[in-house]
Structures are given as C-alpha cells and as structure tokens.
C-alpha cells in the first residue's frame, strides 16, 4: 500500500507545471524515504530530478517500493481538477496498475477522486556524481526567468560568465547583442531578493535558451533559484519545493565544434 497526503496540494500542481513541457512521461519511484523522479527530455539534452521527502508529507506510507510510470500530460490534466487550496492524496495498492488521486477541499465538503492508468516505462537511469561546483549563484527566481526570457530575443544560446565581480548573462544574434550583469547584493531586506555568488574559480559556459526557459516553469515553486557551474560539466538549476524537497534540472553545456 502506498499513500501520500499533502495538505499544500498546490505544490504538487506546481511540480507538474514545472516538468510537463520537458517530459512526456516519467516514473515516480516511491520508497519509505519519499518519492523521486528522474528523467531525460526527449532529445536527451537535459535531465530532470525531483525529490519529495516522506517527512514533507502530512501522511506518508509506502510498504513496498513502487515504480509508478505515468503519462505526465494525463497526470497534469488530473491535477488541473484540483483547486489550489485542495489537499491532495496519491494512493496505490502494491503491484497495482492504477493510481488514485483524491482531492479534498479545505472544509472537507467536496471530495473528488480520479483514477489513472499506470504505464510500464523502460527508462535509462543516470548516475549523478557528487560535485563541488566552481561557482554557485543564488538569485531571485523571477529575475532568472526574466533574464532567460529577455535574452531569448537575441539568440538561441545564453552565455553565463561567473567571476568575482558578479555574473553576466549574454546572448548574440541577428538583431544584435544583449548583456545582463548582476552583482552580488551588499544588503537586502529579504533573503529571497539577494544575489549571492560563491566562487572557487571563474567559469564561462554556453547553454540553449530553449531549455533554460523550460526550467523557469518552476519559478512559482520558489522565490530563489540556484545555478551551479563548473568547467565542461552540466549546469544545475535548482528550485526548492516548499519544505518538502527540490527539483533539479541538469543541462549539458554547448561545446566548440
């Protein structure tokens, strides 16, 4: 028996909004410790990893490890039926071929349930090594979304250059060039408005705008985002999911032809 109840159901709705453009289908691995999802996008350029800790749920039970393969378009359609303030429960029997989503209004006066067929997905699992990144940039998530959107007007790629002076995002194309520089904030009233740069060595890498823009669909999950970079390895874009976990996007850098 698997059962996970989340009073803040809107978080699960936001997680789906954050992955459904990038992934058509994916497996949710349910274990005693929580729920994890790892999947590559269709073109295998990026990797999404979602981690939801068991302690983050208001009720969590997982008697046996369970892999629930889901069509994310269908899951998203079902979660659209939940109101933002609904309590969401996911439930499945051991070895079941369906999962049930239960939505309760805060007053408990309306209860809906939706059953969805599970899929058998044969997906590659990639091992992500523990890495000390040369640069870790924390910035407001809305600012990062704005930068990716604005620079997408100029070209297909964004160059992210991090040095001790700050971080520079650049794009170049037919209409011209754009550069956005962010310096580390000296003092802020609110922590989520800060730009914080931890740098061991300067790094400059180039990434496809298309993917960065898809990652920013996670913006409603968290006021802050962190970007981790090291020379010649994938960028990690990470958003926390309330107090219950995090979503990480890994994106291969573009390399010289």
């Amino acid at each position: 028996m698997f059962e996970a109840r989340l009073v803040q159901g809107s978080l699960l709705k936001k997680v789906l909004d954050a992955i459904k453009e990038l992934l058509n289908e994916a497996s949710w691995d349910c274990a005693d410790s929580g729920i994890q999802l790892q999947a590559m996008d269709n073109s295998h350029v990026s990797l999404v990893s979602v981690n939801l800790r068991a302690e983050g749920f208001d009720k969590y039970r997982c008697d046996r490890n369970l892999i629930m393969g889901m069509d994310l378009t269908s899951m998203s359609k079902i979660l659209k039926c939940a109101a933002n303030d609904d309590i969401i429960t996911m439930k499945a029997q051991d070895n079941a071929d369906t999962v049930t989503f239960i939505f309760e209004s805060p007053s408990q006066e309306k209860v809906s349930d939706y059953e969805m067929k599970l899929m058998n997905l044969d997906q590659d699992h990639l091992g992500i090594p523990e890495t000390d990144y040369a640069c870790v940039i924390k910035l407001p998530s809305g600012e990062f979304a704005r930068i990716c959107r604005d620079l997408s007007n100029f070209g297909e790629s964004i160059v992210i250059a991090c040095s001790k002076e700050g971080v520079k995002f650049s794009a170049a194309g037919d209409i011209g060039t754009g550069n956005i520089k962010l310096a580390q904030t000296s003092s802020v009233d609110k922590e989520e408005e800060a730009v914080i740069i931890e740098m061991q060595e300067p790094v400059t890498l180039t990434f496809a705008c298309r993917y960065l823009n898809m990652f920013t669909k996670a913006t409603p999950l968290s006021p802050q985002v962190s970007l981790s970079m090291s020379p010649d390895v994938p960028l990690v874009v990470e958003y926390s999911i309330g107090d219950i976990g995090q979503i990480q996007y890994f994106l291969a850098p573009k390399i010289d032809d």
Binding site: H125, G127, I128, P129, A252, K254, I255, D257
Partner: peptide
C-alpha cells in the same frame, strides 16, 4: 560554432 551534446555524454547510465 558550438554544438549541443547530450546529457548522457556527462552522466553514465546506472
């Protein structure tokens, strides 16, 4: 020019 490698170039299958 720059080319776009796949993510599996960096992370091995487990």
């Amino acid at each position: 020019g720059k080319m776009q490698p796949t993510i599996s170039k960096f992370f091995a299958s487990v």
